[in-house]
Computed example of a mutant assay.
Amino acid sequence: MMIANATDFQNNFGRYLQAVQEGEEVIILKNGKETARLISHEKSVEFLSQQLRGILKNDRDEKAIREERLKKYEDPD
């Protein structure tokens, strides 16, 4: 993992892009705080797929979800 401040990242974008293409992760800081994380497309797809699998594994009660959504449209009377 590489860490760069925003100015250094801007001035050396090519170097950081190359690192990401080689599998590195780049964290970009602005005023000492993490503001962005640059990862390869492959890693982002993998991350999102893992997150989706986690969501789909959870047991859901479709009836309860539907009732909760319908409550928004009920009259308060």
Rank of each mutant, 00 (worst) to 15 (best):
M1L: 13
M2S: 05
M2G: 04
I3P: 02
I3D: 10
I3H: 12
I3R: 14
N5G: 08
A6G: 06
A6V: 13
F9W: 09
Q10T: 14
N11Q: 15
N11I: 10
N12K: 15
F13W: 10
G14R: 08
G14C: 05
R15E: 15
R15Q: 14
Y16S: 06
Y16I: 07
L17C: 11
L17T: 10
L17E: 14
Q18F: 00
A19S: 09
V20I: 03
Q21G: 04
Q21P: 01
Q21V: 03
Q21R: 09
E22T: 08
G23R: 00
G23N: 03
E24M: 07
E24P: 00
E24T: 04
E24Y: 09
E25S: 08
E25A: 06
I27S: 12
L29D: 08
K30H: 07
N31R: 08
N31E: 13
K33V: 05
K33H: 05
E34L: 01
E34M: 04
E34P: 01
T35P: 01
T35F: 05
T35R: 02
R37A: 03
L38I: 09
I39N: 02
S40D: 07
S40M: 09
E42Y: 12
E42S: 10
E42C: 03
K43H: 08
S44W: 04
E46N: 01
E46Q: 01
F47I: 00
S49T: 08
Q50V: 00
Q50E: 04
Q50K: 06
Q51D: 00
Q51W: 00
L52C: 02
R53P: 03
R53C: 03
R53F: 06
L56R: 10
L56D: 12
K57Y: 02
K57V: 11
K57H: 06
K57F: 02
N58V: 09
R60Q: 08
R60H: 10
D61S: 12
E62R: 05
E62M: 07
K63H: 05
K63R: 08
A64S: 15
A64P: 13
R66L: 15
R66V: 14
R66P: 00
E67P: 06
E68C: 10
E68D: 13
L70Y: 03
K71C: 01
K71R: 13
K72C: 07
Y73M: 11
Y73H: 15
Y73D: 13
E74L: 15
D75M: 08
D75S: 14
D77H: 12
D77P: 14
D77G: 14
D77C: 11
